[in-house]
């Protein structure tokens, strides 16, 4: 019984400690953004890595998501004889939900895992210690460019996803099933309002921050992992954890933001 209580106690303490650490990490990362010297080149490099190099994946997933929405939407709407709403159905689900969420999930798979592994390996081979001993703030030097890049890249990628998705829906709805093009776009114009776009934008900004934060913090605190963050295996396990955790976080925050903004 006592042992059980003790276990609960240590578990709770461990979770609190981890949460506190993650929170502090975010604050320091944000402070890192505002610490001089400011350098543009590292940010551009990260935008290139997180953003530009994800474009192809985003184009691909965006197109297919839009197409499948067109397909599903058409069959559902036809039952009610309202194929004319296809455009607004596709656009609304993309702009408000699927665009930001799927973009974030794809970027987590591509860049989140890479960020976590990179920083984790730097931690493991004392490169982060070396930075600190040179009085170079790792939050400013390593984390800040990644965070900025995440916040810049995600909304842009999401916008691409949305546009390509809408085109994919058009292809299926208009091209395949003969919905009138005018109805497709007219429905979209009349039903998508600024609030919807705003919600998508807020989501993608938050997801950009979330995914860089979690991936970077997991890598940075690799040596404190309870299951042992040692060596190649430690890095791979922690990277997997980071991907799972940030995916879950994206879905949870998606719900929270939706419920707040609706």
């Amino acid at each position: 019984m006592l042992a059980f209580l003790e276990k609960i106690g240590t578990e709770t303490l461990w979770y609190l400690e981890t949460a506190g650490r993650m929170g502090l990490f975010l604050l320091r990362m944000l402070r890192g953004i505002f610490t001089p010297p400011f350098k543009l080149f590292p940010v551009i490099r990260q935008v290139h890595f997180i953003g530009a190099r994800s474009t192809f994946v985003i184009l691909f997933t965006g197109a297919f998501t839009g197409m499948v929405l067109g397909l599903q939407g058409y069959y559902t709407l036809r039952k009610f004889g309202s194929e004319g709403f296809l455009g607004s159905a596709v656009a609304l689900s993309l702009v408000r939900e699927l665009g930001p969420v799927l973009t974030a999930l794809m970027v987590i798979g591509r860049a989140g895992s890479a960020i976590c592994a990179e920083i984790g390996i730097m931690r493991n081979s004392e490169q982060i210690d070396a930075l600190e001993c040179m009085a170079i703030d790792p939050y400013r030097y390593l984390m800040a460019p990644k965070l900025l890049a995440g916040i810049v890249a995600l909304p842009l990628l999401t916008a691409i996803f949305d546009v390509v998705g809408i085109a994919g829906g058009y292809l299926v709805g208009v091209g395949l099933f003969g919905v009138s093009p005018g109805a497709y776009f007219q429905g979209m114009y009349s039903s998508v309002v600024w609030a919807d776009v705003e919600m998508g934008l807020v989501k993608s900004l938050v997801f950009g921050l979330l995914l860089v934060w979690i991936a970077a913090a997991k890598g940075y605190y690799l040596h404190l992992e309870r299951s042992g963050g040692f060596g190649a295996e430690g890095v791979s396990r922690t990277t997997t954890d980071a991907v799972v955790l940030s995916s879950v976080a994206v879905l949870v925050w998606d719900y929270l933001i939706t419920s707040i903004m609706l």
Partner: peptide, 11 residues
């Protein structure tokens, strides 16, 4: 500082 394993930035 010179670390025992040199701790060079490997990328």
């Amino acid at each position: 500082v010179l670390f025992q394993n040199a701790a060079l930035f490997d990328s």
